Amino acid sequence: MSAQTASAPLPEGWREDNRAMWDERVPVHVAGKYYDLAGFRARPDVLRDFETAEVGDVTGKTLLHLQCHIGTDTLSWAHRGAARVVGLDFSAPAVEAARALAAGLGHGPERAAFVTGDVYEAAAAVPEPSYDIVYTGLGALCWLPDLRRWAETAAALVAPGGFLYLAEFHPVTEMLDDTTGTRIVRDYFSRDAQVYDLPGTYADPDAVTVHNRSVEWQHTLGDVVSALAATGLRIEFLHEHDVSLFPRFENFEIRDGYHRFPADHPRVPLIYSLKATKG
């Protein structure tokens, strides 16, 4: 099956509602324990071990982070040796927080730049036309209805000889019940918009919030791979991981720094990662 976009009309105001939701949550994330910015300033590297192993040495390379939020992952690549990192996000408060974090760590915009822009219009917002590495991290693709347009935009920003690296939550998890992850309760192939009205945030479920409407989309693994392959990028690998970064299911345990199912639970892919190169 070829890559698909959302199969129903887009909900009215989806982009504005999503932006308002994220804008409101930035101060909660900046001040809270989840992102622990005080700890990050002391040890500015929050990248996952599989990411650093799969991306490899970034020394001297340029890196663009699409949908960067408050910039902790972006700046972690700088501290891993990238010559220049650029982060893009559609939330102006998130970009301001990222700039402040970078400045506090001694990075000027020539080393770590953050810009506000819609990911679909990234080429017009970022300072350089292409980058050695285009990176997008966990929890990004669900906010985008048009996967093919995202793939075309991201691929166009990869410099010749460079690559796109994607780490994302596995869509299989969205099929399963939220308690034990043992029952299939949702349609894997659904591409309709999922509209939520939920207070709080994954970083602080008890936070008092007003802008609670959000709109998300589910993308199958086949859709992601097909969308990137259609751009001409060469898929180098697709890896699946049985770890998560948050307690997605109620029976999760923390082992080796990751959220996981209990040891006697059948293993389920929780995250996938992908590398696609430009010849």
Rank of each mutant, 00 (worst) to 15 (best):
L221T: 14
D57V: 10
N18V: 12
L10M: 15
L198R: 15
V215L: 08
Q67Y: 09
V86L: 08
F40Y: 15
G13A: 08
L270C: 04
D45I: 10
N18H: 13
T180I: 05
A263K: 07
G39R: 12
T220W: 10
S76M: 03
R111L: 12
L176T: 00
A97M: 11
A8C: 12
G232F: 14
R99C: 05
I254A: 03
A154S: 13
E51S: 06
A207N: 11
T173G: 05
V55T: 12
L274H: 09
A78P: 00
H65A: 04
R15G: 04
P262T: 06
A263N: 02
G60I: 12
D73M: 00
L105D: 06
A3W: 03
Y188C: 13
H170C: 05
I271V: 14
K33I: 05
E152W: 12
A193S: 09
F40C: 03
P269V: 08
A8G: 13
C68Q: 02
L274G: 04
S130A: 15
D17Y: 11
A98R: 01
T173F: 04
G39E: 11
D36R: 01
D132F: 02
G279K: 09
A263E: 14
R149W: 08
P262D: 05
H259P: 03
E216R: 15
A263W: 06
F249V: 02
W77K: 01
T182D: 12
A20E: 07
H241S: 06
S273N: 05
T59W: 09
A94Q: 09
Y120S: 07
R191L: 12
L66V: 09
G200F: 03
P127C: 03
A103V: 07
T72F: 01
D204Q: 15
E236N: 11
P11E: 07
W143Y: 09
R186Q: 13
T62W: 04
V126Q: 02
T153L: 02
P109H: 10
D242S: 15
P129Q: 07
F169C: 08
D118L: 12
H265V: 04
A140K: 01
R84V: 03
E110F: 10
G81Y: 08
Y258H: 14
L238K: 08
V210Q: 10
T220G: 14
D256M: 07
T153H: 01
V28G: 07
D178W: 11
A113S: 15
L221A: 10
F40V: 06
I133H: 01
G181D: 01
Y202F: 15
W150V: 01
R84G: 00
L88I: 15
E54D: 12
Q67I: 09
A38W: 04
V26Y: 00
R191C: 10
L66N: 02
H239I: 02
S190G: 14
V134I: 09
G39D: 06
A113M: 09
V28N: 05
D146M: 05
R267Q: 15
R248M: 13
R186M: 08
R41W: 12
G108P: 11
E54Q: 14
V243T: 14
D73W: 00
G117M: 03
S130I: 04
A125C: 14
F90A: 10
V195H: 10
W77H: 02
Y131S: 00
G257M: 04
A113H: 11
E236R: 13
V215I: 14
